[in-house]
């Protein structure tokens, strides 16, 4: 049994623990690699990086399978990786290559893999809330056991769509788990300014659903609350709201000047690195051996190098792709 920072206990098998570490490490390494590639001008456009928030996506996705859906945010790479989307295809997508998960036509802000139940990052803040309700409606209407997890940021918490979505999910008792990733700033605007409440999770009361705040750096605590919310949804008892409060290591977008946070704040939050904390915890309590973790680190480094090579060496889309897939059919 592993103690969580909320005071609870979770039991996670060794194999699952290794999976959790591998996914978190893969997200961190992917984002660090993307930061470098972006700075070097090899990735076009904009990237919003998930480093620092790994424990949220992985702690939640540890309870999901391919038959479950998620909707995501601007900061969607971590959700993709935790949901099992290929990092090769993801990296190729960020490069705008034809081999990308979206054939190079979505990029970072729309990265998706519907086959894996990943219904897309979203360039519209709060855009995913109604989509998650729809996926939940499909599951309920067709009598399936799956759940839908709707990730949204603290910025999206102030969008009308999120309020409409939570109300709909509640009145229709849909199998949806709303996960607010409160990383303290909507772009540069502090959440203490933009939110009317002390906890975004307090708003759950307005939709007659359970709401809970969890530290975003403690994957075990996220795992614990996610288990309750996902099981509740699977039992047909309706939606829940989880607010995971934490910190993004990079800016809102890569290259953002970060003038809105102090070096002291940054140092304080960086001391809560979810990967470091995970390692310390599992080694201290001898759930996993250091060798096993080091081996994961090596495998992840190989995967990232391989993904980057794949992306670099892949071809750009052919000109004809410009007009493909606007429609399924258009006479």
């Amino acid at each position: 049994m592993i103690k969580t920072e909320r005071g609870g206990r979770v039991e996670i098998q060794r194999e699952r623990l290794l999976w959790i570490y591998e996914r978190m490490k893969l997200i961190r390494s992917f984002e660090d690699a993307v930061a470098e590639l972006f700075a070097a001008g090899r990735i076009p456009g904009f990237v919003h990086l998930y480093a620092g928030e790994e424990a949220i996506g992985v702690g939640i996705m540890a309870h999901l399978g391919d038959d479950d859906y998620i909707t995501s945010t601007h900061r969607g790479h971590g959700h993709c990786i935790a949901k099992g989307v290929s990092v090769r295809e993801m990296m190729a997508e960020l490069f705008g290559k034809a081999t990308g998960s979206n054939k190079g036509k979505g990029g970072s802000m729309h990265i998706a893999d519907v086959g894996k139940g990943m219904l897309g990052a979203n360039g519209i803040v709060g855009g995913g809330g109604p989509l998650a309700v729809g996926a939940g409606l499909t599951l309920k209407t067709l009598g399936k056991k799956g759940v839908t997890v709707c990730f949204f940021g603290d910025g999206a918490a102030e969008q009308g769509t999120m309020h409409e979505a939570m109300n709909l999910a509640s009145i229709w008792k849909l199998p949806v788990v709303f996960v607010c990733e409160n990383n303290l700033f909507a772009e540069s605007t502090p959440w203490t300014y933009h939110a009317s409440v002390k906890n975004i999770a307090d708003r759950a009361a307005a939709y007659d659903m359970p709401g809970v705040v969890v530290p975003a750096h403690d994957v075990f605590a996220v795992y614990e609350v996610a288990n309750e919310a996902v099981q509740r949804a699977r039992r047909g008892e309706g939606p829940s709201l989880i607010e995971a409060r934490g910190f993004r290591f990079y800016g809102h977008f890569q290259g953002d000047p970060l003038t809105y946070r102090t070096p002291e704040d940054e140092a304080r939050w960086r001391a809560h690195d979810p990967l470091t904390l995970f390692r310390a915890r599992v080694l201290d309590q001898e759930f996993l051996a250091e060798d096993a973790l080091d081996e994961v680190d090596r495998q992840v480094a190989t995967m990232i190098a391989e993904a980057t090579n794949f992306a670099e060496s892949s071809a750009y889309p052919a000109d004809a792709a410009l007009l493909e897939d606007v429609y399924v059919s258009y006479p």
């Binding site: 989509l131 996926a135 067709l142 409409e164």
Partner: peptide, 14 residues
Amino acid sequence: GYIGAAVGAAATGL
């Protein structure tokens, strides 16, 4: 909310 839900439902099988 509900037109977006229709989009999400359409993308997942309804």
